[in-house]
């Protein structure tokens, strides 16, 4: 019986590996998720700030959004978690270096001790990736502030999905605040990859391998929810939507200008707002459904929109045909 269940789960994983068009990341939810609605009735602030290009005053834009959200980081240990899962010079997979550099300046200026950490999903040489993405050349003393989360020393966390003990990098566990510096992208197995999905890069490759295949077998949506459940309470989302990715994301899509930075402490609310900007109905994105009222707020009426109104910045991202049903009316 156990073997049969493993085999069935394996189909989902193998399908994800092979690009099975019908696979949408599994439907497993956290066992507690359906019985508790701890956030029912709560509202969450989300700031949308316009930024037309990476050469603008991004630090100023970020500062406005952070202040709108009431974030206080003075004296805190902050880990910036950008997305550089992979590199392709012909598209825009990664959180742009200008956004990472500006965030480093902003959080330092707010009195935080700041590190940058990422565990790329596909490539082994993280520092070479940082070179390709220009992080290493354009962020002063990058090697001194950067932590390769794939190869850092780890400590156990109990109760991650059905795995019992799961290991995470010490910098992640020690941080008072993790800033999910995500890229606004479509995702061919999850619908969209934003601040919550970005936390796949917190899982150490030294134990779980590349491309963090363990999370695919747990279930992509379930893993997103579990990572958000564990790290969401000490998180702040800052999504790079200046130029996002549409179509066959998160690697092989095409650049799409949205001209915004989206911020907030409620990762689900930020991701739901990003979805609306992208012309995606967040209520149809499985992991956001699972997060609603359990890990965050996704209803538009309960998100306190600060800065730009969504209608003013909405620009529909192209969706692959398998996700056409996600289109926001």
């Amino acid at each position: 019986m156990t073997n049969n269940r493993r085999e069935i789960l394996a189909i989902a994983g193998a399908a994800s590996l092979a690009g099975f068009a019908g696979f949408r990341g599994g439907s497993q939810m956290h066992p507690d998720a359906k019985s508790k609605l701890p956030l029912a009735g709560q509202t969450s602030p989300v700031a949308v700030v316009k930024a037309a290009s990476y050469s603008e005053d991004l630090a100023g834009a970020m500062m406005r959004g952070i202040l709108e959200c009431g974030l206080d980081v003075a004296g805190k240990r902050v880990l910036l978690k950008p997305n550089f899962v992979e590199f392709d010079p012909n598209t825009c997979i990664n959180t742009d270096v200008a956004v990472v550099a500006a965030a480093l300046d902003v959080f330092r200026s707010l009195g935080a001790t700041v590190k940058i950490g990422e565990g790329p999903g596909h490539r082994r040489d993280t520092f070479a990736m940082a070179e390709l993405t220009r992080y290493r050349s354009e962020i002063a003393q990058f090697d001194d502030v950067f932590v390769d989360l794939n190869r850092e020393d780890v400590s156990p966390v109990q109760g991650f999905a059905d795995r019992g003990t799961f290991y995470f990098p010490n910098s992640v566990l020690a941080a008072d605040l993790i800033v999910s510096l995500a890229k606004m992208k479509t995702h061919h197995w999850a619908g969209a990859t934003l601040s919550m999905k970005n936390y796949f890069g917190l899982v150490p490759g030294s134990i779980y391998g590349w491309p963090k295949n363990e999370l695919h077998y747990i279930g992509i949506n379930k893993s997103i929810l579990e990572l958000t459940r564990i790290f969401g309470p000490k998180s702040f989302a800052l999504v790079d939507g200046i130029v996002g990715m549409e179509g066959n994301g998160p690697i092989q899509g095409t650049p799409k200008k949205a001209g915004v930075l989206v911020m907030g402490s409620d990762l689900a609310a930020v991701d739901a707002t990003c979805c609306r900007i992208m012309g995606i109905d967040p209520a149809r994105v499985e992991y956001l459904q699972g997060a609603a009222d359990r890990l965050g707020v996704i209803e538009e009426s309960r998100i306190e929109q600060r800065g730009e109104a969504i209608a003013g910045v909405r620009t529909n991202f192209q969706l692959i045909k398998e996700y056409s049903q996600l289109r926001l009316a």
């Binding site: 189909i11 994983g13 590996l17 092979a18 391998g209 590349w210 295949n213």
Partner: peptide, 22 residues
Amino acid sequence: LVKQERDISLKSWPWKPGNSGW
């Protein structure tokens, strides 16, 4: 029933047990 882009009958090795071969 599932579109495959590799022959999964050819066994390979995973990073850890219970994962796909890479």
